[in-house]
């Protein structure tokens, strides 16, 4: 369902436009406006997916109005222009109108323009959904650590890793999504090479920390924001303090 507004300075032309809109089941008429100024008020209050807009109006032309809406903005409503003047067509498409109705127009032509509008709206929605889905989705493969643990290869997004601790020949990977650390048969040196150096740091012979998860640091100990308190080894202190110095205010 598309929420639309109709704009035309001539009352009868506006009535005709509104009548046509009401005949298309996919369109909901939110408001009819006699001027672009009035339409701007409606746009400020209501969610509007598309506008049908006359071009030649006193006070403020439809072209200037649509230009002012900011076509760059993905949230800006779609536009179908209506006009009696075919020479505006080119200029209309320059401001990225979906379609153009030359007055007077038939119901068939109006349906066709509405069809294009609905199609474009669906494309927009699909694009928006896939964009937001992508953001919510698992990170890209180059953002994931693949680790053989608990008899299978586990995918662990970097951002979920809090810190890694060596225990003899094993290492324990503490993550957000798992209550217990993952156990893997792997030297710490190997996993150090697999984690991005700008986000993880070896701070001890047996610890690698996620630098984004530090809560505070003092007296040779670093406290992670889950409360874990880890020592900083003497031979790693210089590197850690250097990193810290670059960031400390």
């Amino acid at each position: 369902m598309l929420r639309v507004i109709a704009i035309d300075d001539e009352p009868l032309a506006l009535l005709q436009l509104a009548t046509y809109i009401q005949r298309v089941p996919e369109l909901t008429l939110v408001a009819r406006c006699q001027s672009a100024v009035e339409a701007a008020g409606v746009l400020a209050r209501e969610q509007v997916d598309a506008i049908f807009c006359d071009i030649n109006m006193p006070d403020l032309s439809g072209l200037d109005f649509v230009r002012a809406l900011g076509r760059e903005d993905a949230e800006a409503p779609l536009v179908v222009f209506t006009t009696a003047y075919s020479q505006y067509a080119l200029e209309g498409f320059k401001v990225a109108a979906v379609d153009f109705l030359l007055k007077p127009y038939t119901m068939d032509e109006f349906r066709r323009a509405s069809g294009r509008l609905i199609e474009r709206h669906q494309q927009q929605e699909a694009l928006r959904e896939s964009q937001s889905a992508q953001q919510a989705e698992e990170p890209e493969s180059d953002e994931v650590l693949y680790l053989r643990a608990d008899h299978r290869t586990q995918a662990i997004p970097f951002r979920e890793i809090k810190y890694v601790q060596a225990m003899g020949e094993y290492l324990r990977v503490f993550t957000d999504s798992r209550a217990r650390p993952l156990m893997a048969l792997l030297p710490l040196k190997r996993i150090e090479g697999m984690l991005p150096a700008d986000r993880f740091m070896r701070v001890h012979r047996s610890h690698i920390i996620n630098l984004n998860r530090i809560a505070h640091f003092s007296k040779g100990r670093v406290t992670m924001n889950d409360g874990a308190c880890l020592p900083i080894g003497d031979s790693y202190r210089a590197a850690f303090e250097q990193w810290l110095a670059r960031r400390r205010a």
């Binding site: 001539e10 009868l12 032309a13 005709q16 009696a84 003047y85 030359l102 007055k103 007077p104």
Partner: peptide
């Protein structure tokens, strides 16, 4: 054209 549109 506008007049025809109004008559329409």
């Amino acid at each position: 054209m506008n007049t025809l549109n109004n008559i329409h």
